[in-house]
Amino acid sequence: MSAVLRRLLVYFLAAWVAITVSFLLPRVVPGNPVAGAVARASQSGNCNAQCVIAVEEQLGFNVHTSLWDQYVQYMGNLAHGNLGQSWSENAPVSNLILSYLPWTLGLLVVSTTISFFGGTALGIWMAWRRGSWFEWVLPAATFFQALPYFFLALVLVLIFGQTGTMLKWFPSLFGYDIYVVDPGPNWPYITSVLSHAILPAATVVLSSIAGFILSMRNQMVTTMDEDFVLVAAAKGLPTRTVIWYAARNALLPVVSNFTIAISLVVAGQILVEIVFNYPGIGFHLFDALSKLDYSLVQGIFVVITLVVLGANLLADVAYVLIDPRARQAA
């Protein structure tokens, strides 16, 4: 089986498992999840009669068809892009997710790009100037890496956010100023969106960059010990070429581990969105959870999985582009 087909099979299976798990869980978990869910919801005052019916239907309770028939119907609907109906928003889940997704993807792409390229560049530099003053970044990076994303978000809000109590420099609530500007292609809206993205993006970058710095630094240190880097120096090539030779090889394991990195960034961003009430899928996942809107929860989970799988596929393509050995296996 060629490497490409193998990867595609993994992604296909991963998507299938994610979808099936989210279908199966509410239906096979022992006890009566509906009663429990309704009890919890009414305790918080979030679930009305309409909610109870919706929850029952979502969880296959009081639905008198076999599990298999429900599954076939669920998969059939999915194939048509139908993720069900959200009772809390009273709208098709797929439409809702499409409206949330740009916020999440925008934030994710911008901050991951900054973090990946910035972190990698810093890691390369640190490895090259080993033993210099720059080494102090190492313990600092370790500490930053250990900060949970949402905790850093809280700290940044406290210090820089307008809902915090200190500097009040940047907006720290919502994706744009919902009281002042009208969404659409107008200048005030665009600047509002950008200024509202500063703190969430800074949080994601600061939390994730340390990981990229450390892994690139370690890979680079290891690669610089290879003979071909020594030969590049012996060849009298300019320093930047020597560094590039080492860096391109050191990048290979970093790129192949992008899978786990991107999962962690996505997970972190979900929590960051919640802290900032940022209108992406992470915040709405949280919202849907508290409203027991299970079809929305399931839909968002499936879409997040697909986004992560997509990012993995991109990383695979990048890997093949920079490693001729993988290119031939592909």
């Binding site: 786990i260 962690l264 997970a267 997040i304 992560v308 993995n312």
Partner: peptide, 8 residues
Amino acid sequence: LAIPGLPL
């Protein structure tokens, strides 16, 4: 590994 951990 491909399924994102936290959402799951």
